[in-house]
Design a protein around this nucleic acid. Structure first.
Length: 801
RNA sequence: GCCCUAGUGGCGGAAUGGUAGACGCGGCAGACUCAAAAUCUGCUUUCGGCAACGAAGUGGGGGUUCGAGUCCCUCCUGGGGCACCA
């Protein structure tokens, strides 16, 4: 018996898998399908992070088990290779992103293969391959045709450091997601996707899928549905009107002033009537120059300027109220105007206090001069609403507004349309042409893919225009519609475009007639199980659901949701319990782990290190323990004796493991599934001999975690075929139960003894055994039990006193 | 401020309302060895005690229950998300 040479043995099986392709998916198979998905990575120059394999291994365990359960499994891998990071890296190194991307992909593929994932590598995809992005462009055009894409001036988030536009989802606390620098607001012509048109469905249809609840909560939160009313206020000075959105129409009698966003266009219209225009203009200019970080600082004092000479009529009271502008009202939400009810809104209260505006009490329950009262109560000082509670008053008020044609019920969303343009080079060209005569014209399908042209200098420009604009020959084209002179769009798509639909391409990766054969889509969608990071909840996952619904509405894909089930893994931290980062110097490189311990140890450790859901710190000690475990498994080969009958203990240990490992994998309790494997081999090792069949069955349980060693032992036991192609073992329930059971005996809920009784013993027997215990007698101090609770095979609790 | 999440030995972590600490790491003692590594055996929540045993114990405080790490209320702390969204 030699030591386990993992380098040699892992290479041997990886070569064999490569040749025999046991993980190839037959999409036309009659077997029950199982579509498993992990987020395909962005192939960075740093290579694979130890965080990636946590997700990949988990679903690899599921994939391998499902194959052994006779499912046809789809488990693919590919590269989300467009995007800013690749371009930034290329600019820094001076090497074209196409070249660095190819190198990075090769490195990622090598790393993944060294870990032994059971991906069907013949279905590898790459978002930067023209054969792939042809369909990304095609799908974008489908959205154009459905009226879901439009180009228009919009206030965008611009990162002056990265020199590009950011989607709202890419702005974190007013800063850039990538460089964390401040983000400016600019007005720019951008391609937009109308994700807001799907806001309601994106929220509602979460009920039709099985996502872990934090994902559901976070998406709903992000979509931010709120029910309220739109109310029209009329200007006192002329008949112009201003519409506000409020969730509290019930408080309208307390609306003592109105606030407009500084950017509100009405301010310009009203200029001739505004007597303090200089002050107004100065305030607007100052607001414009503020970054979102300044503007969204909740703790800062409220500022604002009144529009002197302007007032509006409160439709409920008919009284004129002043109009202010303040940057605490945002142009991008509702109508950019609010009715301020300082008595019952904290922000309005703070504003009113500062500027000495009237604070009216219209809902009983608080002292509005001290602080805003936002709770429930009975309406007061509110005319026909008096005496109603908040809910009823809301309904009554909306009714009243509708009757008088002054407003109606309205639902608003925080979700904004998706800013889809990037003034960058390394992305899918947007296949649109601007014709002087015809306007924006989509490229016809036969001109797809619109290949990303070569460019000498692909660096972003300081004036915010796209690098492709420099290619004047490429930009100049003819209109597909009228053949007149036209210009190509020079913006490219964001990183998120290619990942919106990539899972479908695994199903039919080489098809050039369609992104996927519709029959295959029909059979394989939705994805059965998608595991990925929480950080993608309001980005990729939301975009992708929207993209799918848009395609579904165009009749292109089946169903309404792309992913049936969504789970998430916790982050892997450094040994210091901090997020791994170069600057902290706590990064663990998967290559060095594989080199030192082998893929099997790496995989098993990643599953054993902690609860899959939760963050877990890297630990060199624990990984050693896993290595020791696998060495013990290997050493069992020495005990193999085909003439020895299995001991009952060994059989019980095996069947216990079959039960526990299977059940724990299904519950994604991978750490305790590994514990169950450990317990089993600890039991196996007790005896001097072990029948080959028991170790063979154990190999089946081990194979999802440590597939190389499992194959090797399986072969050395003299078995035919691959262990990964065997059937998942079943357990004999009779072997799961013991004849006797040790249970606790409590006196008044405190443990005083344990008794071993036969399984299924009657309550009387258990009680008698319990009362006979010395420890119990001592605790009873001669008192007579008042009550004895026996839970069969579980516990005896004696109540005294 | 709002919405999620978590808080258990020296450490990672186990526990369908029923013997808290499985499994692993680390530590201690021993075996093997010229020695070391590797391996194996035993012990290892804390306090008191030679021991038998006793007491305390799952972030704090209340509650429900024969019985609470687990359920309810409340507070504290860490992690994540959203945030002047009317």
């Amino acid at each position: 018996m030699s030591d386990y040479n993992f380098q040699e043995i892992e290479a041997k099986w990886q070569d064999l898998w490569e040749k025999q392709k046991p993980f190839a998916c037959d999409v036309l198979s009659d077997k029950k399908k199982m579509f498993l998905l992990v987020e395909f990575p962005y192939p960075s120059a740093q290579g694979l992070h130890v965080g990636h394999p946590r997700s990949y291994t988990a679903l690899d365990v599921i994939a391998r088990k499902r194959r052994m359960e006779n499912y046809e499994v789809m488990y693919g891998m590919g590269w989300d290779a467009f995007g800013l990071s690749a371009e930034v890296y290329a600019v820094r190194t001076g090497i074209h992103p196409r070249i660095t991307t190819r190198e990075n992909i090769n490195n990622f593929r090598r790393q993944m293969k060294s870990i032994g994932f059971s991906f069907d590598w013949d279905r590898e995809i790459d978002t930067t391959d023209p054969h792939y992005y042809k369909w990304t462009q095609w799908m974008f055009l489908q959205m154009v045709k459905q009226g879901l894409a439009y180009k228009g001036p919009t206030q965008i988030n611009y990162c002056p450091n990265c020199k590009t536009t950011l989607a709202n989802e890419e702005v974190i606390n007013g800063g850039c997601e990538r460089c964390h620098g401040p983000v400016e607001k600019r007005i720019k012509e951008q391609w937009m996707l109308k994700i807001t048109q799907y806001a309601d469905r994106l929220a509602q249809e979460l009920d039709t899928v099985n996502y872990i609840s934090p994902v559901v909560d976070q998406q709903r939160n992000w979509i931010g549905r709120s029910e309220g009313a739109e109310i029209t206020f009329t200007l006192k000075e002329n008949n112009a009107s201003i519409t506000v959105f409020t969730t509290r129409p019930d408080t309208i009698f307390g609306a003592s002033y109105m606030v407009l966003a500084p950017e509100h266009s009405l301010v310009d219209t009203l200029r001739p009537k505004i007597s303090n225009w200089d002050a107004v203009e100065a305030y607007r200019l100052a607001a414009k120059q503020k970054t979102d970080i300044d503007r969204s600082d909740v703790t800062k004092e409220k500022t604002g300027v009144p529009l002197e000479g302007i007032s509006v009529i409160n439709p409920a009271t008919n009284a004129p109220i002043p109009v202010w502008i303040s940057d605490y009202v945002m142009m991008g939400y509702g109508s950019g105007a609010i009715m301020a009810v300082p008595g019952h809104d904290d922000r309005d209260w703070a504003f009113a206090k500062k500027f000495h505006l009237p604070i009216l009490d219209v809902i009983s329950g608080g002292n509005v001069q001290e602080s805003a009262y936002t709770g429930d109560g009975v309406l007061v000082n509110s005319g026909f609403l008096n005496g109603l509670n908040v809910t009823d008053a809301k309904a009554r008020m909306i009714e009243w507004l509708q009757k008088h044609d002054m407003g109606s019920a309205k639902i608003n969303y925080k979700l904004r349309d998706w800013i889809f343009s990037r003034q960058r080079y390394w992305g899918e060209p947007i296949p649109m042409v601007l014709c002087q005569a015809c306007g924006w014209v989509p490229l016809p399908d036969d001109q797809l893919p619109l290949v990303l042209p070569e460019l000498e200098d692909y660096r972003p420009t300081d004036d915010g225009s796209a690098p492709l604009a420099k290619l004047t020959d490429w930009v100049k084209t003819t209109c597909p519609c009228c053949q007149g002179p036209a210009e190509r769009e020079t913006d490219t798509m964001p990183q998120w475009a290619g990942s919106c639909w990539y899972f479908m391409r695994y199903l039919d990766p080489k098809n050039d007639q369609a992104f996927c054969d519709p029959k295959i889509l029909e059979k394989w969608l939705p994805v059965d199980w998608y595991n990925g990071g929480m950080e993608h909840t309001t980005l990729h996952l939301l975009y992708s659901r929207f993209w799918y619904k848009a395609l579904a509405d165009a009749g292109i894909v089946p169903g309404i949701e792309p992913y049936g089930r969504r789970t998430s893994h916790g982050m892997i931290l450094g040994t210091d319990n901090e997020k791994m980062s170069k600057s902290r110097g706590n990064v663990v490189n998967p290559d060095s782990v594989v080199e030192a311990y082998g893929a099997d140890v790496f995989r098993t450790y990643e599953m054993f290190m902690g609860d899959f859901d939760k963050t877990a710190p890297w630990s060199d000690g624990t990984i050693n323990g896993v290595a020791r475990f696998l060495r013990k498994v290997w050493a069992l080969l020495e005990k193999i004796d085909s003439s020895a009958p299995p001991s009952i203990e060994q059989e019980k240990a095996l069947h216990r493991a079959i039960h526990d490992v299977g059940e724990r994998i299904e519950r994604m309790k991978f750490n305790t599934a590994v514990s169950a494997l450990m317990e089993c081999i600890n039991a196996f090792a007790q005896a001097d001999s072990l029948p080959p069949s028991l170790l063979g069955d154990f190999c089946k349980l081990l194979s999802p975690f440590a597939p190389h060693m499992a194959e090797e032992i399986w072969q050395q036991l003299g078995n035919q075929g691959l262990v990964c192609q065997q059937s998942w073992p079943t357990y004999d329930s009779a072997l799961l139960v013991d004849d006797s059971v040790t249970i606790g005996v409590q006196v008044n809920g405190k443990l005083r003894a344990t008794i071993t009784i036969s399984k299924g013993a009657s309550n009387l027997e258990a009680e008698a055994a319990a009362l006979a215990e010395e420890g119990v007698k001592r605790a009873l101090e001669g008192k007579t039990p008042r009550k004895v609770i026996v839970v069969p095979d579980r516990i005896v609790n004696i109540v005294v006193g």
